[in-house]
Amino acid sequence: MKIYYVYILKCADKTYYTGITSNLENRFFEHQQGKHQESYTYKRRPLELVFYAEFSEVGFAIDTEKRIKKWSRVKKEALINDEYEKLPNLAKKKFKK
């Protein structure tokens, strides 16, 4: 069974990059070495792998990556820091009264 990884990298400029791969070690090495000059991470090295999750179904992994990419910085940091109980409240929109 093939395993897919959704991962988050912390860039040198303190931004986050979210991606998907079937070979986490190799993909992280490619990011660190700057294999793709057009990539978001190229000018933001060095990088730190701060989160990853494993999936057995590629479709679910892709959906998860797309969902995380839309998240706010605060919500991504809650995920990175294993503060899962905060995620539902961070997903709620705040409305002015």
Rank of each mutant, 00 (worst) to 15 (best):
G59V: 08
R67H: 00
K35D: 07
Y16T: 06
K43N: 15
F60V: 10
A53C: 00
Y7T: 02
C11W: 06
S56F: 12
V58L: 13
G19E: 01
G59T: 15
V74N: 15
P88H: 12
Q33M: 12
K97Q: 07
S22Y: 14
E77S: 08
P88S: 08
P88F: 01
Y42P: 04
S39T: 08
T15Q: 02
E85F: 13
A78Y: 07
K35S: 13
A53N: 13
R45Q: 10
R27C: 05
Q32N: 14
I3D: 07
T41W: 03
R27F: 01
A91S: 15
C11V: 09
I3V: 02
T15C: 00
K69Y: 01
Y16S: 07
R44Y: 09
Y16P: 02
Y84S: 08
M1R: 15
V74Q: 11
T18M: 00
H36S: 14
N26Y: 10
M1S: 10
A61C: 09
D63T: 12
K76R: 12
V6L: 02
S72A: 13
Y42D: 03
E30S: 14
L79C: 01
Y52I: 02
V58N: 10
R44G: 11
A61S: 14
K66N: 05
L87V: 10
Y40E: 09
I20H: 03
K14A: 14
E65P: 02
K10T: 06
E83M: 01
N26D: 14
L90D: 05
K35H: 05
K35T: 11
H36D: 13
Y40L: 09
S56K: 12
I62Y: 15
E83L: 00
K86N: 11
Y52S: 09
S39E: 04
K35C: 00
Y7Q: 08
K35A: 08
P88Y: 04
E38F: 14
R44T: 09
E48M: 03
Y16I: 05
K75W: 09
Y5V: 02
E48R: 08
D82A: 10
R73N: 11
A61Q: 07
Y40N: 07
K92P: 00
L49R: 13
V50I: 00
L49D: 08
F51K: 14
Y7S: 05
R45A: 03
V50C: 04
T21S: 14
Y17K: 13
H31Y: 10
G34H: 07
K97F: 05
I68L: 09
K2V: 12
T41A: 05
H31L: 04
R67V: 01
